[in-house]
């Protein structure tokens, strides 16, 4: 029982971590919360539904399709909703935030229009396959979700830590002006970051579809708010914080359902924000660096 719940919590938490990484990357380089991230995530889930259910194509095609479409959405978001507001005189620093809220409303309504308001089942061909280890039941879907999430997290960490482009992203996140003085084309780096974050949102969309077998146009908002809670918990702009925060929230939600009251499940994230802001306002992994 305990181990099963632990597996459930880790599966959920690893998805949360992927969503939160999308938020934290964009926050890192642009200093804004991308309120459209949840809706891009939701589109990823719908594209997964379309490809697997309507077209009957295999899962990897769904992933490829979702990555491509959400990456394009990320590019459009940056190109038309964010970039025109940058470095303009008289533009409030809140403008890009409002702009992403506008995009999120647009995307949610667009998905109502395209896919209908109802609940779409997500059929993974292996949804029913499970393994019995002693008294523990583990579903193949859970293993797939967990493995994909972990691989994604390791790849991202490696990319940020070891590659030139990843280091350029970190430099840009830390100080845009300094990065440009060191030869980084910061406009390109920002665009690339929004694209990567959005594509990760798309992947997370499919993972959530697989985990809950349900996709709706409203799922973007609730996931978006949780992603936001996680990066506040983990530390705004911190990659490790997003990963740890996601896993913590996933485990906490799972255990509150089992040992407490399932009605409080969605409250956990926000309770965590209140507590963390009181005790450690910079987040678990947020650093206060003095220069």
């Amino acid at each position: 029982m305990l181990i099963e719940q632990l597996i459930n919590g880790l599966t959920l938490g690893s998805i949360y971590a992927i969503v939160a990484l999308g938020f934290t990357l964009v926050f890192g380089v642009l200093g804004i919360i991308n309120m459209a991230h949840g809706e891009i995530f939701m589109f990823g889930a719908f594209i997964g539904v379309m490809i697997t259910s309507t077209l009957n194509a295999p899962l990897w095609v769904a992933f490829a399709g979702a990555i491509i479409i959400t990456a394009i959405m990320g590019y459009m978001l940056e190109r038309f909703a964010l970039r025109p507001l940058r470095h303009k005189q008289g533009v409030s620093h809140l403008a890009p935030l409002i702009s992403t809220i506008g995009v999120s409303i647009l995307l949610e309504n667009l998905s109502h229009h395209l896919f209908g308001a109802g609940n779409h089942p997500f059929r993974a061909s292996f949804a029913e396959i499970s393994f019995q280890i002693g008294s523990i039941t583990v579903y193949l879907v859970q293993i797939v979700i967990f493995v994909i999430s972990i691989v994604l997290m390791i790849t991202l960490s490696f990319w940020l830590g070891k590659t030139k482009a990843g280091k350029a992203l970190r430099a840009t996140a830390e100080n845009l002006e300094t990065a440009s003085l060191l030869g980084v084309d910061t406009k390109r780096t920002i665009t690339m970051t929004v694209i990567i974050a959005s594509a990760m949102g798309g992947i997370a969309g499919i993972l959530v579809g697989m985990a809950f077998n349900s996709v709706t146009p409203q799922m973007g908002l609730s996931m978006g708010l949780k992603g936001l809670a996680i990066i506040i918990l983990g530390g705004m702009g911190s990659v490790r914080g997003a990963m740890a925060g996601g896993l913590i929230l996933g485990l906490a939600e799972t255990f509150i359902v089992v040992y407490g009251d399932s009605g409080y499940r969605d409250a956990i994230a926000f309770l965590a924000i209140i507590i963390i802001l009181l005790i450690r306002p910079q987040g678990l992994f947020g650093q206060k660096i003095s220069t």
Partner: peptide, 16 residues
């Protein structure tokens, strides 16, 4: 770049 190591700072110097 306060959040990057001394070595990474130097590597960033040779970025281009």
């Amino acid at each position: 770049l306060a959040g990057m190591t001394v070595l990474e700072n130097l590597e960033m110097g040779a970025y281009h």
